[in-house]
Design a protein around this nucleic acid. Sequence first.
DNA 1: GTTCCGCATGAATCGATAG
DNA 2: ACTATCGATTCATGCGGAA
Lengths: 289, 289
Amino acid sequence: MTTQLPAAFKDQYLIGDCRDALAQVPPNTFDLIVTSPPYADSRKNTYGGIHPDEYVEWFLPRAEQFFRVLKPDGTFILNIKEKAVNGERHTYVLDLIKALREQGWLWTEEFIWHKKNTFPGKWPNRFRDSWERCLQFNKRRKFKMYQDAVKVPVGDWAESRLRNLSETDKRRDNSSVGSGFGKNVSNWVGREMVYPTNVLHLATECGNKSHSAAFPVELPSWFIRLFTKEGDVVLDPFGGSGTTGVACAELDRRFLLIDLLEEYREVALERLSEVSLQGRLELAGTGDD
Amino acid sequence: MTTQLPAAFKDQYLIGDCRDALAQVPPNTFDLIVTSPPYADSRKNTYGGIHPDEYVEWFLPRAEQFFRVLKPDGTFILNIKEKAVNGERHTYVLDLIKALREQGWLWTEEFIWHKKNTFPGKWPNRFRDSWERCLQFNKRRKFKMYQDAVKVPVGDWAESRLRNLSETDKRRDNSSVGSGFGKNVSNWVGREMVYPTNVLHLATECGNKSHSAAFPVELPSWFIRLFTKEGDVVLDPFGGSGTTGVACAELDRRFLLIDLLEEYREVALERLSEVSLQGRLELAGTGDD
DNA sequence: GTTCCGCATGAATCGATAG
DNA sequence: ACTATCGATTCATGCGGAA
């Protein structure tokens, strides 16, 4: 077995730069790292709006910490998408993949997050960008993976609906298309379950909170179910509004979130209280204890 | 205006390596290049099964010809996907993107082709691979793009409608409308039309014919409508069974297909005859005239 | 003429076996 | 140790034959 957090470990939201905060965390601590880092030129008020050309340089020392604190059989999921710069897709994500491999990471897989409801928009030379990369990296070729936890109903619900006219109309559920997620699995009891693919169909979360650009809770939730079991420990080094924490709370995983601003943690606290689990969150850590 | 093919240009299927065949084509000839090259380690009987580590080296001299024969405001669409090697995704596609940029190409966009029906299989460390990249490259920042030609009804677009078009349905109204989707469009009258996104939902063509076309006709068709107008000239340097030619015939575009084997051209001829357009295909060229 | 069921078959990947 | 080949796995699709 690898080094474990003490059994008394409480879910935490640390304030600070994950590069510094993680330096004080023991190696081989986390079963899963799932995060959506600030994209290049975004979140200028906090991370300073990293220039695309400097993104890899900015990311690598943090990824070095990720590598250290991830268990040998753990997984690192990186949700990211390059922006268009000067009419062209920037290559910093490609460069980052190659740089991470040189750092020792294995680029195991690239999942596609298809954002079903993207914001309308039209440009003279491109369409709406409705997908993002979810890059999977590992330290070793053998890693933990609980595929049964993300099984989905056998496909083509549309066709079966056409066959059984009235019967299936009642059961119609829009959340389980394609590689949809087990949120409404109970509705599909009795149906044959199959393994999903590497394409995830999820709607972006509609802007209802005081935070923006968040990924939907189903995204970390899916990877958490796939790569961890109950009681495992998950890290989100760019915790933001705490979506990963919400997913962990719902799934009985422990978590460590890190981000720069106190107000992010406040939002996270609010959201965790909404899932009636605010008692879980340890309010102590500020990154310097 | 750029150099044009003579007005008497006939659709052709050349036998040979596109690297050599294109050397005899005038520069700035094509409005669009859309192709699905042999993937690494595949099609061993013809292209020799290019090793992943040598793929970029193999591809670049051919891409140099593509650059020369593409019009300045034309587009190059490359359908490709890296394979898993030794438990890891190989990086040759990433390397290829970067190498093409060094060759002068602009990496304008990356479309995702979501393959609804993918090959089965279960492995301990990954799910089925159900998406491929459609990389868009351009010579200049300003290029021709006819966005209205690919508008779709609001809501699900290819999820159900395009896929459900049978062969006869697609054939029926081709002559009268010329768009190749006349019947379809008529069904959508009254529905609000919107621009699509950069995610395409298409099923791979299954074993319905005597040949196997990995590339559904809707894929080149979509890009042909988006980047060309009637009468424009399209190149597929890895023409295979002629799917791109079929799409061009249906859409009243002219085309040049190139591939190594005589038998590929025979299959292409057969398929073009099925869309009642075999008279269009010039049988002369064998790559050495 | 419909509807339904069975079956073959795909840009696949891994692990084991053989040279 | 490294490469090449083979078998097992498994699901969306469209075809043909049967009811």
